[in-house]
Amino acid sequence: MIHESLLHHDLLFKLLLIGDSGVGKTCVLFRFSDDTFNTTFISTIGIDFKIKTVELQGKKIKLQIWDTAGQERFHTITTSYYRGANGILLVYDITQPKTFDNISKWLRNINEHASEDVERMLIGNKCDMEDKRLISEERGKKVAEENGIKFFETSAKENINIELAFNTLAEDILNKQRPIEDNNVATGVNLQGGNQSSSGGPGSCCKL
């Protein structure tokens, strides 16, 4: 009857957006959480935060999404958030080759600071700017394949693949937890009852 009871329980997944400065992390997040697009976002200093609830496989899942500053200076601040993340979206800009070249650097960061079972996803943003494109979709795919992670090209501006990317990531995290679930171990943070003190923050995440 464990499935029955889980139906009514919220799961909480902690997601993290990383990538070079100016690739559109904040725009991607706003498109997903508020369904708006704004070209005049001020630069993110430190970290920003949004919550969105999605329903997947009959479960209500609360996504806690952390948007990090891209500039090198903020890395010590932002890498401390990697540890508790269930999923990480690594974003580059298809019109800026430098942001693509830095993917390996960001992947190394994930390896160093995130937990081993973190779900990763590669996002090539600004795919609406076809005439400015410098990184082909194939190159994005190839890097993703080499690292065994999923890949989407998105446009926060034109609302392309944003929801799909987040939902896919959430679903992958959910599926990963399935085997444990079948062993009658509750997964995710139980938000409605029980342990009050672990209702958020890094480190608390899904593992009780």
Binding site: I45, F49, I77, S197, G201
Partner: peptide
């Protein structure tokens, strides 16, 4: 403290920018 809201979640920006944002 209980909710594990760390200072760097918000104070980092507040203090670095002298609250200008």
């Amino acid at each position: 403290n209980d909710q594990e809201i760390r200072p760097q979640f918000f104070l980092f920006r507040w203090m670095t920018l002298l609250l200008s944002q």
